[in-house]
Amino acid sequence: MSHTSEPTVHPAALLSLPKAELHLHIEGTLEPELILELAARNGITLPHPTLEVLREQYEFSDLQSFLDLYYANMAVLITEADFADMTRAYLARARDSGVRHAEIMFDPQAHAARGIELSTAVNGIAAALASSEAEFGISTVLIAAFLRDETEESALEVLEALLAMRAPITGIGLDSAEVGHPPSKFIRLYKRAAEAGLRLTAHAGEEGPPSYVEDALNLLGVERIDHGIRAVEDRILVKRLVREQVPLTVCPLSNVRLRAVDTLAAHPLPQMISAGLNVCINSDDPAYFGGYVGANFDAMAAEFAWDAATAELLAGNSIRSSFAPDARKDALLAELAEWSTAHGTDLDPGQGAARES
């Protein structure tokens, strides 16, 4: 994969590429325009009262500087309608990026801490997701992500409340400030979620060390790692991830904006693909990081001169690594096969296999 400004796969082809998005925080899709609209609707005075001033805040020095703005902007989410509008706005943009299946994380603790009833957030998001396939052509899964800088007791309390209300969640995740909050802090939470039949994923190896990836697998029993880019620093861990084909949901533009990676050119994703890791591309918090999943594909394709087969490999990984029912995966892989035929790749979309690049 050489560096060039000209991808060998056309941007329009990347947008039509059927793909799943597995690492997406719905609160991170709040665009500045919608933030101001919801603030006006709910009579909320923001510290950044104009679009221009608000946009100026979107330069981050690290993960924490982003989180400070991310949580502050959540103040505009008050009613079920607010959560539904936010979710539909994401689905419309995801459709334009070729997303056919989306696994959407939300932060229940962050809303509970603001005095918002869990049912308000859950019902609002779920209302939009209930019609997502009919309205946008996107099947969806909802994941409750817990804040690692809060206590495990708080997480357990919220999980029990979600289970009691029969919230339509498929799995749990772990997000927010990573360093200093290792996976070992949440063993009971993940044990309880597993007992409840929920799927398990966790952020690890973004700012935290490779050992966090290993601990998420060994101690929490996760099926999927969100980010995982620092795993490349541990050759033994890489061999395990390749052997077990553990999905890694990589977010290139996010990594650069949060300074986890200095530049796009320095991003380890090409190295991860060549090593045989099961990686896919996602947008994380696209309103804050410069683009939805289509923009992430565009940027990486331009930087590393990707051909159609590389794009197809990543899309296939995303579909196979999803928590979608097998029938939905099969349907999406069939769509991907049609895309493959149209774009002349020689990769079998039904097989998850990395190739040397």
Score class of each variant (00 low, 15 high):
E6G: 00
E6I: 13
T8G: 01
V9K: 13
H10S: 14
H10T: 07
A12Y: 03
P18E: 09
H23Q: 11
H25D: 08
L30T: 06
E33L: 10
E33H: 08
L36Y: 02
E37G: 07
A40F: 01
R41A: 14
N42R: 08
T45I: 13
L46M: 13
P47I: 14
P49C: 11
P49T: 06
T50C: 12
L51N: 05
F60W: 00
L67A: 12
L67F: 08
D68V: 14
L69Y: 03
Y71K: 00
A75I: 15
L77I: 08
I78N: 13
T79K: 11
A84H: 10
D85L: 15
T87C: 14
R93P: 00
R93A: 11
G98E: 03
V99A: 02
H101L: 07
A102R: 08
E103A: 09
D107H: 12
D107S: 13
Q109W: 03
H111W: 07
R114Q: 15
I116D: 15
S119E: 14
V122S: 06
N123C: 10
G124P: 13
G124H: 09
I125N: 12
A127V: 07
A127W: 04
E133L: 10
T140I: 09
V141H: 11
I143G: 12
D149S: 04
E153W: 00
L156H: 04
E157S: 15
E160L: 05
E160H: 09
A164L: 12
A167L: 14
P168Y: 02
P168N: 05
T170F: 03
A177N: 05
E178Y: 04
H181E: 08
P183T: 02
S184P: 03
I187Y: 04
R192C: 03
R192N: 01
A194W: 05
R199D: 01
A202N: 09
H203C: 15
A204R: 07
E206T: 03
V222N: 10
R224C: 10
D226W: 06
V238W: 03
V242C: 14
Q245N: 10
P247K: 05
T249G: 13
C251G: 09
L253Y: 00
S254V: 01
D262T: 07
D262M: 01
L264E: 01
A265R: 09
I273G: 11
I273T: 05
G276A: 11
N278L: 11
C280D: 15
P286L: 12
Y288R: 00
Y292S: 01
D298S: 06
M300H: 04
A301T: 06
A301F: 03
E303I: 05
E303Q: 14
A305H: 07
D307S: 02
D307C: 02
E312Y: 03
L313C: 13
L314S: 03
S321L: 14
S322W: 00
F323L: 12
A324C: 01
A324D: 01
P325C: 15
A327D: 15
L332H: 08
S340N: 14
S340L: 10
A342M: 11
H343I: 10
G344D: 15
T345G: 01
D346P: 00
L347W: 04
L347Q: 07
G350K: 02
G352A: 10
A353T: 06
E356R: 12
